[in-house]
């Protein structure tokens, strides 16, 4: 999305990528490589979120939602499946480490 009008200084702080962010990146690379959506489809959804989403969500918070939307459109997952699974995941615990099932982590302190 083309952003307009910002005149502020560039913030050179760098955050370390979290495991969940890398996983979002990886699943969008793999699912798009398998032809379930295009990067243009992802960008369309990101743009449709509007400028407010750019302010309120981090980069990968936006991207994971765009991936979900595209996978639903592609018929790979249904909204019903997604709702059931997110409820199941959220019920596992209150941190990312607890909610991630054992055996699917990459050893980054998980």
């Amino acid at each position: 999305m083309e952003l307009l009008g910002e005149q502020g200084a560039i913030d050179l702080d760098q955050h370390d990528f979290a495991l969940w962010e890398k996983r979002v990146d990886a699943l969008l690379v793999l699912a798009s490589a398998r032809g379930y959506f295009t990067v243009d489809g992802l960008r369309r959804v990101l743009e449709d979120m509007g400028p407010e989403a750019f302010e309120r969500f981090s980069y990968y918070e936006r991207w994971v939602q765009a991936v979900a939307q595209n996978l639903v459109e592609a018929g790979v997952v249904t909204l019903e499946e997604l709702r059931a699974k997110t409820e199941e995941v959220a019920a596992r615990g209150s941190t990312y480490g607890e909610a991630s099932l054992a055996g699917t982590s990459t050893g980054e302190g998980a």
């Binding site: 959506f37 295009t38 243009d40 489809g41 960008r43 369309r44 459109e73 592609a74």
Partner: peptide, 8 residues
């Protein structure tokens, strides 16, 4: 054309 690709 990305304008087409974006809509499957």
């Amino acid at each position: 054309d990305p304008q087409e690709l974006a809509y499957r």
